[in-house]
Structures are given as structure tokens and as C-alpha cells.
Design a protein around this nucleic acid. Structure first.
Length: 635
DNA sequence: TAAATCCGCCTTTTT
DNA sequence: GGCGGATTTA
């Protein structure tokens, strides 16, 4: 692997605090991999002393694979994972010091929302804040590591934490918070990790929030070897608590800028550079390349969103027929998911010739929407497992106690949960002595049959493998029939059942790959990743996704659509006068393209069922005219 | 308890 | 315009 001089500097700077500002397409993953190789092969550093933190599973997996290709088996000893998975493994070992047990459950945002809703209802707060606003305030105060803005919200947060503790459950933010707490309250534990991971690197550092910052600083405090890579110009997760100041004010011993771009042609880079230069709050850098292709960026204005979509499809087909591109070389990107609708329709009805035959429908995949672990049936299955592993997990228990339906009504459950809270007894232990409760006999019978099956399943789960027990359990509760009764369309039933099978298959695969790990490890691994654990190959399809999900990817050809004021910058961002992040978002979109980039907008667009007139995005006027080729929407 | 209707939402969302 | 969640109704 050849490195340019700047990349080489970065790869060979092993000691101290190093900040690498890596522009889009500047080969930063290559640098991280080379650096690890250099440490292990040249500097004789033990692979186990290296920790690499990333934000996505995809990035972690890619790094592990690339490292393995170069290094072989020792690559497995390098600890490469997401912040969250790293925290899970720390907490599994030592969370007992914080009053939890290692079989804790993980709650996702939806679970927390439900829980908070109930808490708000129960507290009957005298406040004008909606549950939504409370959630938002809570979220913000937590990621920023400060106090909520009102006493009511504080009350809700306190209550939420009490509930989570009683249920032996954590949410995603908690994983980070608790790990920090553990390290701060138990220096010996921290020191164990400091001494093990003497060399730490963090990817996409511009996306760290204050808690992640704290965590990284704690880990690196003793040996001071912290290597962070990022691009402040690509910080687009501010709305989730990411704090750009972390990268802008990182105190470094050495700063290295990677500005040579290996991805895009000159006009695309010119446009990107000139656009982002309008931002004030940034480390100044300018991307350059040595490519000679002088093609310009296409741009057109269509009379309607339908016409815009058709015009994109037409251009897309030209790329295929005239330039020999494959579908998978093409990305269609937009600000928000709703914008996918119109373009999908146009892709479905497109007709084209391929290998002498007339085809209808361009193959495509839409990214985003409900991820695997968020689908109702998958949430049911993991709720079963969570409750089996951790019977204190009241939320999971409530989710599945009446699935499939067995006559346990909401009021019955309300009575029981209230009693559980007041007496400090877990809901499940009330279930096991249900005869003593005053509830309907139908409810009693339902709960009794649930408890006996549950107990038997727990017995069977004492022994590995778990997979046959789960299959047996699903047969027992006749989950397939429950799905069939729940949803009408046959297509949907099939889809859901396939998901169930995929989940079972992933349990089986996990057990084979990790024979020494427990069921709780499988559950957290599967709730920390969006896709089922085994993934299909990259198919030859056009990819549709938001600017946000496109970060880190590249396409030979890119279409950015809906570039209208109110969409980009989004109207809700305008209220906060926060244009800079929106500009970065556009920058991320532009820099995804290697050879061909097409920008488009429509004069009118449906908004909540009504057509409204739209103006071109103000950002378009910031691009160099010389780099644009203004076209009619009709070719 | 389950079906029917009504209401309010609608930016992005690595984990 | 379309979806999920909550509330009302049978």
C-alpha cells in the first residue's frame, strides 16, 4: 500500500496526541490500517494493546477485515469496535459495582419513549410540555452531559433512571454514561483498561458527543497515546449531540492534514471547496487531486417533482448505455426520506433496453426506514429473550406477556405494575403468585400458562445451544399463527415470518462463532446492529439514501435531488439559524461523487398533501458557476 | 377484548 | 396523504 507523505507522517506518528484532519476521500481508513500495521510489524507493539473505536458496526467490521487481509490472524487480537459495543464489554465485566447485574437488558429509543410516556402519565405533571418535548429536552441534556432545562423534566429523568435500575436495563446513552461513571468511581478498573489499551484511535472524531469525549480522555489519560481522525466539515450529527468543538479544540501534540483527494474529479472538488469555505467555524483545508477529467457538474430545474424524477431516470439510463456504468455505481441522495417516493415511482416505471431485451423497472434499494432490529416481530423476539435472561426487565415482559393474545387486558396489567412499583416487588414475581391477586380469572389463566411455559423455557436455556430452545419456544406459543392473525396481507405475513427466520438463523450463527458467549451477548450484539448479523452481497442496484446515510460511501455517479430552500437547508434548521451544519450536509453529498454529479430541484412539490412552490437552495448560489453545466430538464 | 375511528405527527438518526 | 398510537365504541 502506497502512502503520500502526509499519510505516511500520520501512519508513523505512534506516540502522543495526534489529530488527523482527513478531508473527504483522502484515504483515511487506509492510514488507520497502515498505522496499525506499522505499530505491530515495525514497532513490535502487541495487537492486544491497540484499541480502535468507530461509530458504526460497518466501519469496525471493514477495518477488521482490511487489517486481517494484511496481517492475518493476529488482526483478531486488535480490539476494533463501536463505542457502544466497547462499553457493553466493559460493563459486562464490572457493572456489578454500580448495582446492576451483568445480565442487564438494552433498551432502544422506542422502549425509552414508551417508558417515559408512562412515567409522564403517572406523575401527572403540571406542565405544558408535551411528552415529545420532554423527551427532546431529556435527550439533549443527557448527550451534552448537563442538567435538564426544567424541574419537571428533571423529575421525569430521575424517575426513568430509577425504573431502569429496577428493571436492570440500560439504554444506548446509558452504556456510555455508566462506563464513564464506572471509570470515574473505580480508578482501579479504569487503570486496567488504560494499561491494556495503550494505543487508542478514534475514527469520525467530529461526531463524538461530550460523553464519548470524556470516555476517550479517561482511557487515554495515563499513556497519552490518542490518535483521532475526522473531518470537521463532515460533522452532520449535531442534532444528536455530536459536538464539533471536540475536534476544533482537540489539544494535540501533532496536527496532520490530509487534503489530497483520491475520489473525485476537479470540478466536483472545486464546488465542494468553494461551498464549504463559506462556513466560519472550521479548520481551513482545501481538497485537491491530480485527475485530468474536466467534466462539469450537471444541474437542472424541473417544473415538478415528477418531471425531476423522470429527468434523473433519463440521465441515469444514459450513464448506463453510453458510459457503461452499472446500476450499483449510481447513488441517488436526498435530504429526507419522504423524497424517495417520487423517484421510486419513476424507477419502477422506467423502460429500457438491455442486452437486446426491453426491461421495465430499474433495480434499486432504499436505505433507511425501519431497520431489522426495529421491526415489530424482531422486537417481540428479543423482548422474549431479554425477559428470559433478565426477569426484572418489566418493559420486555409487558411487551410480550399478551403476545400472542391470551386475554390479559391493559387494566389488569396496570393494576399489577402499580402494585409492583408500590411494593418494590418485581412484576414477574407477582406473575408467579398470581392466585393472590384480585384480577379477572381470564387474566389469571393467561398469566399462569405464560409463567409455566416461561419457566420451562428458562430451564431449557440453562443448556447450550440456545437455538433449538428458541425454535421450540416459538412453536409452543405458535408465533407464526400470531403473525397471521395480526396482519391481513399475505405478503406482509410472509415478510414478517422471513424476519423471524432470519433472527433464528442469526442466533444459530452467533452461537457457532462465539461458543464461549452467553445469550445476553447475543441479545446486545443484535440490538446494537441495524442489519441481521449475516448480510447479503452487494447487488447490482441503484442505491437510494439520505445525505446522512451516504456519509463514508462513494459512487461513480451521484444525483442529489430536491435542492430547494426549506428542504436544504431544512426549514427547521433555519429557525435555529444553523445553516452551517446544513451546508456541511450538502458538502457531504457533493463529495460522494467520483466522476459524475447531477444536482436538481423542482419548481413545485407536494407538502402534506398540498402542492407548494419551491425556490432553489441558497447553497446553489455559492457554487462556482464555472464548475456547473446548466441543463434543461429535458435532454 | 377487539374493532373502529379519530388524532396528530411529518428532518436527519451511526448506536 | 399516510401511518402509528390513543381513544371510543360495540
Amino acid at each position: 500500500m502506497h502512502l503520500n507523505p502526509e499519510q505516511k507522517k500520520a501512519a508513523e506518528q505512534i506516540e502522543g496526541r495526534v489529530l488527523v484532519l482527513a478531508g473527504a476521500g483522502s484515504g483515511k481508513t487506509r492510514v488507520i490500517i497502515q498505522r496499525m500495521l506499522y505499530m505491530i510489524q515495525i514497532k513490535n507493539i502487541a495487537p492486544t494493546a491497540i484499541l480502535g473505536l468507530t461509530f458504526t458496526n460497518k466501519a469496525a467490521k471493514e477495518m477488521q477485515e482490511r487489517l486481517k487481509k494484511e496481517l492475518g490472524k493476529p488482526a483478531d487480537q486488535v480490539f476494533l469496535s463501536t463505542f457502544h459495543s466497547f462499553c457493553v464489554s466493559v460493563l459486562r465485566a464490572d457493572i456489578c459495582r454500580l448495582g446492576y447485574t451483568k445480565k442487564f437488558s438494552l433498551y432502544d429509543e422506542k422502549d425509552i419513549q414508551r417508558l417515559v410516556k408512562n412515567i409522564v402519565k403517572e406523575l401527572a405533571l403540571e406542565t405544558t410540555l408535551s411528552t415529545q418535548e420532554i423527551l427532546q429536552d431529556m435527550q439533549e441534556s443527557r448527550t451534552k452531559g448537563k442538567n435538564p432545562s426544567s424541574p419537571e423534566v428533571k423529575q421525569v429523568v430521575d424517575r426513568l433512571f430509577l425504573a431502569l435500575r429496577a428493571y436492570n436495563a440500560l439504554d444506548f446513552d446509558h452504556l456510555l454514561e455508566m462506563t464513564c461513571q464506572l471509570f470515574e468511581m473505580h480508578p482501579a478498573v479504569l487503570e486496567k483498561y488504560q494499561d491494556r489499551f495503550r494505543y487508542i484511535s478514534i475514527d469520525e472524531y467530529q461526531d463524538t458527543n461530550p460523553v464519548q469525549f470524556r470516555l476517550a480522555e479517561l482511557l487515554a489519560k495515563k499513556h497519552r497515546n490518542l490518535f483521532v481522525v475526522g473531518d470537521d466539515d463532515q460533522s452532520i450529527y449535531g442534532f444528536r449531540g455530536a459536538d464539533m468543538q471536540n475536534i476544533l479544540r482537540f489539544s494535540y501534540d501533532r496536527l496532520i492534514k490530509l487534503e489530497q483527494n483520491y475520489r473525485s474529479i476537479p470540478h466536483i472538488l472545486d464546488a465542494a471547496n468553494q461551498l464549504i469555505d463559506k462556513n466560519q467555524d472550521r479548520h481551513k483545508k482545501t481538497l485537491w487531486c491530480d485527475k485530468k477529467d474536466t467534466s462539469k457538474i450537471s444541474i437542472f430545474h424541473a417544473p415538478s417533482e415528477e418531471k425531476e424524477a423522470e429527468a434523473i431516470v433519463e440521465r441515469l439510463l444514459r450513464l448506463i448505455t453510453q458510459r457503461g456504468y452499472a446500476f450499483k455505481d449510481i447513488g441517488i441522495l436526498y435530504r429526507s426520506n419522504i423524497l424517495a417516493r417520487t423517484i421510486e415511482k419513476a424507477l419502477l416505471s422506467a423502460r429500457y433496453w438491455k442486452k437486446g431485451a426491453l426491461h421495465q423497472g430499474i433495480p434499486y434499494e432504499v436505505f433507511g426506514g425501519l431497520s431489522f432490529s426495529e421491526r415489530a416481530e424482531i422486537k417481540d423476539l428479543s423482548a422474549y429473550l431479554k425477559a428470559l435472561v433478565n426477569p426484572n426487565d418489566q418493559e420486555s415482559l409487558l411487551r410480550i406477556i399478551n403476545v400472542p393474545r391470551k386475554g390479559i387486558s391493559a387494566p389488569t396489567l396496570d393494576t399489577l405494575t402499580k402494585k409492583a412499583r408500590q411494593t418494590g416487588v418485581s412484576l414477574y414475581s407477582l406473575f408467579t403468585h398470581i392466585d393472590q391477586e384480585e384480577i379477572s380469572s381470564r387474566g389469571k389463566n393467561g398469566i399462569k400458562s405464560f409463567v409455566s411455559l416461561f419457566e420451562e423455557t428458562k430451564q431449557r436455556l440453562q443448556n447450550k445451544p440456545y437455538f433449538p430452545t428458541l425454535s421450540w419456544f416459538l412453536e409452543e406459543i405458535d408465533y407464526k399463527r400470531a403473525i397471521e392473525e395480526e396482519v391481513k396481507s399475505e405478503k406482509m405475513q410472509r415478510f414478517k415470518w422471513e424476519n423471524v427466520e432470519a433472527f433464528l438463523a442469526s442466533l444459530e450463527a452467533f452461537e457457532q462463532d462465539h461458543p464461549d458467549q452467553g445469550l445476553e451477548d447475543f441479545i446486545s450484539a443484535s440490538s446494537l446492529t441495524k442489519t441481521p448479523l449475516h448480510r447479503k452481497q452487494d447487488e447490482d442496484t441503484v442505491k437510494l439514501m439520505t445525505f446522512h446515510s451516504a456519509k463514508g460511501l462513494e459512487f461513480t455517479a451521484c444525483f442529489l435531488l430536491g435542492l430547494e430552500d426549506h428542504i436544504l437547508p431544512h426549514e427547521k434548521s433555519q429557525e435555529e439559524k444553523n445553516y452551517e451544519e446544513e451546508r456541511r450536509l450538502f458538502y457531504v453529498g457533493i463529495t460522494r461523487a467520483k466522476q459524475y454529479l447531477c444536482l436538481s430541484m423542482a419548481k413545485e412539490r407536494a407538502k402534506m398533501g398540498k402542492k407548494v412552490r419551491c425556490n432553489p437552495s441558497r447553497f446553489l448560489f455559492e457554487l462556482p458557476k464555472n464548475s456547473l453545466s446548466i441543463e434543461s430538464h429535458q435532454l
